[in-house]
Simulated assay, not measured.
Amino acid sequence: MAGLINIVPRYLPGYGMAPEWGHAVRPVVLVYTLVCVVLAIVFNADVDAQAGAYATGFLAMMVSGAFAVTVSAIRKRQRRAAVGFTVLTLVLLYALVENIREKPDGITISAFFIVGIIAISLVSRVSRTTERRTDHIEFAPAARRFVTDSLEYDGALYLIANCRQGGDAAEYAAKEAEQRGMTPVPGPAEVLFLEIDVIDPSDFSDVLRVRGIEVDGHRVLRAEGPAAPNAIAAILLALRDATGVRPHCYFEWSEGSPLTHLLHYLLLGRGDTPPVVRKIIHRCESDPARRPGIHVGG
């Protein structure tokens, strides 16, 4: 067992990368160019229509900026500035409305461009749901100690996934009792809690840092990532590779509509976590005997 304990590293490379298309040269430029070419073909490359679209977009941007400055001036009680920017906003708004009235093709092209970008963004978001989305995993000293202590205790790793609320001792005690009652957590096993604080769901984390926090005897592995399921899967796989022990993670089924959970995951990085974690692990590991165990109750 000592051999397993000593190889828990602080830094684990190679867990997840940017999406495959992200390795292309200037992918955003290519996407924008493609959308522009498609729109040019659809509208027969009409220069006047595209000029209208440019004017519409430019005026819309100016109206938004003028309105934002107006609101700021009102909040700061700058009366003269508020009056001046209100007039400017109304003038720009009038120009925008007249431009749309005279050149309706402009707003049509702008709308198609926006729809195209949103559609491509959604396809991209869906296509990378089963990626680990991290380049490296780094365990802080306290996190390493928790893992090694757990291995010394019974030679196994049992983790309970927790969506932190108050973060106090009562919450962890209730969560452990609940999981032991509805999932096959071995009776004498020592458990670690695993928590992911979701940051920007659109981002890719270069380094997933796992910290160790102790709350009244309850040991918590906590990390920040762009999506909870992806980060959990990456940590479980990293623990398996680093220790040689197949970890087991315990979840509770989420209440609500599956469609709602899907939208929450795509937009906010959270949703019905267990199925996504399982899918990511299946994608990353073809051998069932080497996959971390995923247990769900409730």
Rank of each mutant, 00 (worst) to 15 (best):
G181Y: 12
M182I: 04
M182K: 12
M182F: 08
M182N: 11
T183W: 01
P184L: 07
V185C: 05
P186C: 00
P186E: 02
P186Q: 09
P188M: 00
P188W: 04
E190W: 15
E190G: 03
E190Y: 14
E190S: 07
V191L: 09
L192P: 14
F193Y: 04
I196S: 01
I196N: 01
V198I: 09
V198F: 03
I199F: 02
I199Y: 05
P201T: 06
P201Y: 04
S202R: 12
D203A: 10
F204L: 13
F204S: 14
S205Y: 03
S205G: 08
S205Q: 13
D206G: 11
D206L: 07
V207G: 06
V207F: 02
V207W: 00
V207Q: 10
V207T: 07
R209W: 12
R209A: 04
V210F: 07
V210Y: 09
V210S: 05
R211V: 00
R211M: 06
E214W: 13
E214A: 13
E214K: 11
V215N: 12
D216G: 00
G217I: 15
H218T: 00
H218M: 03
R219A: 07
V220Q: 00
V220A: 05
V220W: 00
L221Y: 08
L221S: 07
R222V: 04
A223F: 14
E224Q: 10
G225L: 09
G225I: 08
G225W: 05
P226F: 01
A227K: 15
A228Y: 07
A228I: 06
P229L: 09
N230E: 02
A231H: 05
A231Y: 01
I232Q: 07
A233Y: 02
A234Y: 07
